[in-house]
């Protein structure tokens, strides 16, 4: 094998950057599928059937309790076996990104459903009453009055979600995905672990500003989307409150929304 020199942090950053595109891919796809799944779960949680509510709640609890690396492995080893032995389809050749997207979509389903539910419940009930009283249908009232307000309440959590995905997605290297983290790991192996520190520090110097940029982007979005036009002070306090509430989530795993 060719011996490579990875001693320059700057060169390593240049080498790693193109691999970010795969990272962005699974972040966006997991967000998309997770969002759809979460919508379903949130509807279940708010519906009137006890059984559906219980199922959604149990699912969310399970996802909250599992470390993402564990679920990633379970999905990675379970899915091929399941499809080979039950569906009789060999999926050994599917791209590894599929497992990553599936794993995090499963997580996000649980987490985002809690975000949606608490955001929905944060909108006061009288808004629905008022909308119905002027003759809007329940659906119109939901889309035009409730949803915009709920979305605003959910923005801080969405920012956390994206940063969470970015950070936890790094674990995808453990199943051999060559995203930005996987490439760093591969570079380290290719160079016989002679330059681990320059390689991994280069990677950290990619993640760090990226997370900051994402955080700031969502802050701008929040300011733009602020439909309630609260004066800046109360808006700031609210933001702080949400941050405090969901801060734990930034570390590792999706957290439940506001407890009832």
């Amino acid at each position: 094998m060719q011996y490579k020199n990875y001693s320059s942090i700057l060169d390593n950053i240049k080498e790693l950057l193109p691999y970010l595109s795969l990272t962005f891919q699974y972040v966006l796809l997991a967000l998309l599928f997770g969002f759809i799944f979460a919508l379903l779960l949130a509807v279940m949680k708010l519906c009137k059937y006890k059984v559906l509510r219980a199922i959604a709640q149990i699912y969310t609890t399970i996802m909250r309790c599992l470390p993402s690396v564990v679920l990633l492995f379970v999905v990675y080893f379970f899915l091929p076996k399941f499809s080979r032995e039950v569906l009789l389809i060999d999926i050994d050749d599917v791209p590894k990104i599929l497992f990553v997207v599936l794993t995090f979509a499963l997580f996000l389903g649980g987490f985002l459903s809690e975000v949606m539910r608490s955001a929905y419940q944060a909108v006061s009930k009288d808004q629905m009453d008022a909308a119905l009283s002027i003759g809007l249908t329940p659906l119109q009232a939901f889309i035009r009055i409730i949803l915009p307000q709920a979305f605003y309440y959910a923005i801080p959590n969405l920012a956390n979600t994206v940063i969470y995905l970015l950070k936890e997605g790094a674990l995808a290297y453990t199943i051999g995905l060559i995203d930005v983290m996987g490439r760093a790991y591969q570079m380290n192996t290719l160079s016989y672990s002679v330059y681990p520190i320059p390689i991994f520090v280069a990677l950290a110097l990619i993640y760090w500003p990226l997370a900051i940029v994402i955080e700031q982007l969502f802050k701008i979005l929040e300011r733009l989307m602020n439909p309630i036009k609260e004066d800046k002070k109360t808006a700031g306090q609210k933001l702080k409150g949400f941050k405090a509430k969901y801060l734990g989530f930034l570390v590792q795993t999706p957290k439940g929304g506001a407890e009832k």
Binding site: M181, P196, A204, Y207, L210, A211, I212
Partner: peptide, 13 residues
């Protein structure tokens, strides 16, 4: 820095 970097990366370092 710590909050923006994946824990697994810090661990590998």
């Amino acid at each position: 820095f710590i909050r923006s970097t994946p824990p697994i990366l810090l661990i590998l370092i």
